Structures are given as C-alpha cells and as structure tokens.
Simulated assay, not measured.
Amino acid sequence: MKLAVPTLLLFALLCSCDPATETVSETPEVTTSDPTENRAQLVDIDSDEARIATALLAAPAASRDGAKVIGYNAAGEFVTLREGTNEFICLADDPNKDGFNAACYHQSLEPFMMRGRELQAEGKSAQEIFALREEEVKSGKLTMGDAGSTLHVYSGPNATYDPETGKVDGASYRYVVYMPYATAASTGLPESPIAPNHPWIMDPGTHRAHIMISPLKGED
C-alpha cells in the first residue's frame, strides 16, 4: 500500500494542475454513520481494473463510458489500459507515487501532456518542463490544444477505494480550463482565489495560463 501524503502537501498541491508535474490531488470524502465499518470496505488500488475504475472518476460522469484510459499496468509499463470512443483521455493513478492522483483531459491536449511525460521521464524538473514547453509552444513546435480545453483532476492522500461506491478514500475533485497567454486583464479573473469555490487564473501570461476551479466538498 502506498503511504499517505501529509495534509500540508495536499494544500500546496491545490495550486498545481499538470499531470506531468503534480503528484497528488483531492475528491469528496466517503462518509457513513459508522466510519470504522466504511474503512473496512476499502481496498488497495493495485490492479488494472481498479486503476481504470478510479481513473474514470476524474471524467465528467456523462463521458466516463467512452473515455480512453492510459497509465501504468501491473507490469509497470505505460500503456493504453482501455480504448475510448469520445474526446476524453483519462490518466490513471501512478502506483509508484504516494497518494492517489487521476486526471482526465480533452484529447486536443494530448501532445502537450505527452511532452510533459516525456520530459519527466528524462528527469527534468517541474521548472525545466515548464520552461521547455513554453519555448516549444511559442515556436509552434508544440500545440496547447483547443482554447478552452479542460483538465479534470481527482486526487487524495490515500490509494485505497471502496469497490461498491467506486469512491477513493479522502479524494476530491477540481478542474481547470486552459486559456493560453490569458491574463487577469484579458479575463477579469483574479490571480489568486478570493473565496471558496471562486475561479481564478493561474500562470497568467504564459502558455499554461488556465482558469482554476475547485468545487466545494459535496458540490462536485
């Protein structure tokens, strides 16, 4: 079983939205009248079937049936875990990282996301990945996909889930809308959250500018 990530790390990661560089995320907690009984139902996310099922939780509910799922299989190989029929690609949790993190994004973002995974595999840091992709997007070598494309993230500190409900223990949901080179002035959005559940713009003026939205628990 993977180790739980400290709460403070989770808080810091609320501001991170790129599957190529982030390690963990959040989602609605599973609660019952008997927490002890509920925890007894939790099992490790340690099979391809479990990784597919939990990865799909990052996709909008109406799009889960047709979403493609990619990620690491039981043999440690990065593969297509399930073919898809719609515009979404879901990235399953990495079993080699602590906590749980799944993401789902519009297919037009795949070149950008794939490039991030390639650079990460080369050992590049988050800062290096950002700088290299910024340069490649500006030069036209790399596309950021369609303006307004979305990335949905479902993450939490524990890599365990309830097979009956499909919920990941302690996980929560957030999503972003990519708006390359947008700024606070061009969108009217603040550069930091001013209230719970309030959208704001992150990485303004860069290739990775995006609107960040973190629904309140129970409203996602």
Rank of each mutant, 00 (worst) to 15 (best):
Q120C: 05
P19R: 02
S186K: 13
T54I: 11
G156C: 10
P196A: 14
A102L: 09
I89N: 03
E134Q: 15
L132R: 04
A55Q: 00
D44T: 08
G166P: 06
A61C: 07
D146Q: 13
G71N: 04
L109E: 03
S214Y: 00
G156A: 06
L189D: 02
D93Q: 05
P190C: 07
T27S: 12
L3M: 09
R133N: 10
T36F: 13
L189A: 05
A182T: 03
Y175T: 02
S63M: 15
C17S: 14
E77I: 07
M113K: 01
S63K: 15
A92P: 08
A185S: 14
T27W: 03
T160M: 15
V30W: 00
G166E: 04
Y154G: 06
R208K: 14
H207L: 08
T54N: 08
T23A: 12
A62W: 02
M202L: 12
A159C: 10
A103P: 01
G156L: 09
I45M: 08
L56C: 05
D94Y: 00
A195L: 11
I211L: 12
Q107W: 02
Q127P: 10
A92N: 01
T183V: 13
D48W: 00
T183C: 13
E122T: 04
R64C: 12
L91F: 04
P19D: 09
R117C: 07
F88H: 06
S214L: 14
N73G: 10
A74N: 11
P6L: 08
Y175P: 08
V43W: 10
M202N: 14
A55D: 01
M114L: 10
G166M: 07
Y154V: 09
L216T: 05
N73P: 12
D162K: 02
V79S: 09
A59N: 03
F130H: 05
T143M: 08
K141G: 04
L216Q: 13
I89F: 06
D203N: 14
T23R: 11
P196I: 07
V168R: 01
I129Y: 00
T150G: 14
C104I: 03
A195K: 12
K138F: 01
E164D: 14
T85S: 15
F112W: 13
F78N: 10
M179H: 04
E49A: 15
L91R: 02
P180N: 07
D98S: 11
K141W: 00
S16N: 13
A20T: 01
E37H: 08
G76I: 10
T206D: 15
T187I: 08
A67H: 02
P157I: 00
T80C: 12
L91Q: 04
A53S: 14
G123W: 01
V137P: 09
D18P: 07
I194M: 12
A67S: 15
K124F: 03
D93F: 00
G188W: 02
R208W: 02
R82C: 09
K138N: 11
G145E: 06
G116Q: 06
T21N: 11
A147Q: 11
A12E: 13
E83T: 02
D46H: 01
P193S: 12
N86F: 04
L10E: 07
A159L: 08
Y181G: 02
R51Y: 01
G205Y: 00
N86V: 03
M1H: 11
A20I: 01
C90N: 06
L91W: 00
C15V: 09
